[in-house]
Amino acid sequence: MEFRELGRTGISVSRICLGTMTWGEQNSEADAHAQIDYALERGVNFLDTAELYSTPARAETQGRTEEYIGNWLQTSGRRQDVVIASKITGPGNEWIRGGRPIDGKEVVAALDASLKRLRTDYIDLYQLHWPNRRHYNFNRSWGFDPFCQGREGVRENMLETLEALDAQVKAGKIRAVGVSNETSWGLMEFLRLAREHNLPRLASIQNEYNLLRRHFDLDLAEVAYFEEIALLAYSPLGGGVLSGKYLDGQVPRGTRGDVGDVWRMSEHSEPAIRAYVELAKAHGLDPCQMALAYCLTKPFMTSVIIGATSMAQLEADIGAADLTLSDTVLEGIEAIHRRYPRTV
């Protein structure tokens, strides 16, 4: 397994990160522990979770994923072997701290609750799950309008949040900080505030990146390069749609589509998905492994966050780290992207 530095932190993380959002809904605690054990055997040292998980998000299962990880840490005694990333939820879910936006007070409350569930004294990477302000993630790019919001208090809130994170770093509860579902402006503003006020510098950004959603290729890629910010790509398989299993209206039992929405499937994305699946099959490749291996070719990619509901999926996903795509396949991917550059 190859490793990369997490920004400028000196923390070394595997190129494959084990995502955990299915644990507690689609996967049992026994499944979760088996996945961690297998991933570590294959050289993965990086786990990503959030106070929101499991998914689909609902009050009855909120925080369960962190509890599963915490129980594994307690029984295995292997805290030193894993880099754990978690997140504070942004505004909007009433059952999580009243749905309040992120601020200094909420950082402290959310972090302490996550530490308790994780049964650990510290979190290696603590991330802001999504901004308080408007953003284009979660399928919002077509309707994104930053002008439908006020400017007042935005920078002040960002500074307050960074100051709260700084206090938690100094208290030894956090090693590094990051953001998720951020924009180029948001990333640069956090970096400016950190520089001017001697506060923690962002190590990473966790945004969606896959064959269907390549927003990061543009401005954010430039920011990541010049500012040495690690991209942790979530949904590298587009929530499973790039496997082809949802084509022609299929919704296999037990899949994410069976328990929640498959919002990346539409009349616009289906032709692109079909083309990628056909390309993979024409070259004797598994469509999921091809999609993951492609993400790993990107120079701005630090780690790709995988998720699996079965051990067979997990084995295949981790195996993608050993796959080298031919020039012909890479050219085929770019030709499809040129034909379907932006899908919903």
Rank of each mutant, 00 (worst) to 15 (best):
L6P: 03
R8W: 03
S14A: 06
G19P: 04
M21L: 10
T22H: 11
T22K: 05
W23Q: 01
G24S: 05
Q26F: 06
N27G: 12
D31M: 00
D31L: 06
A34S: 12
D37V: 09
D37K: 11
L40W: 08
G43Q: 05
V44A: 01
N45I: 00
L52N: 11
L52I: 14
S54V: 03
A57P: 01
E60A: 15
G63N: 05
Y68P: 01
Y68T: 10
W72K: 07
W72D: 06
G77H: 10
R79E: 11
R79K: 10
Q80S: 15
V83C: 13
I84D: 09
I84G: 08
A85Y: 08
A85L: 12
S86Y: 12
G90L: 13
E94S: 14
I96T: 04
R97M: 15
R100W: 07
D103F: 09
D103M: 08
G104N: 06
K116G: 03
L118W: 05
R119T: 04
D121Q: 11
Y122W: 03
Q127D: 00
L128W: 07
H129F: 13
H129I: 12
W130Q: 04
W130E: 00
N137W: 15
N139A: 13
N139M: 13
W142L: 14
C148S: 15
Q149T: 05
Q149D: 15
R151G: 14
G153H: 10
L159E: 15
L159M: 13
E160K: 07
T161G: 07
T161C: 12
T161V: 14
E163N: 06
V169K: 08
A171W: 14
G178D: 09
G178A: 09
V179N: 04
S180L: 12
S180I: 11
N181S: 15
N181T: 09
F190S: 06
R192S: 09
P200F: 14
R201V: 14
S204G: 05
I205T: 10
N210I: 00
E222A: 12
Y225H: 12
F226I: 07
F226E: 02
A230M: 08
G239R: 11
G240E: 07
G244F: 08
Q250E: 13
P252C: 11
G254Y: 04
G254M: 07
V259W: 09
M265P: 00
S266Q: 02
E267D: 14
I273L: 09
I273S: 08
A275C: 11
A275H: 08
Y276L: 02
E278F: 06
A280I: 03
K281W: 06
H283V: 02
H283D: 03
H283K: 02
D286W: 00
C288V: 13
M290N: 01
M290S: 00
A293Y: 00
C295Y: 04
T297Q: 14
F300G: 06
F300W: 15
T309A: 14
S310Y: 07
A312V: 04
L314R: 00
L314P: 00
L314D: 01
E315L: 02
I318G: 04
G319M: 02
L325Q: 02
T328D: 15
E331V: 06
G332Y: 09
Y340C: 05
T343R: 10
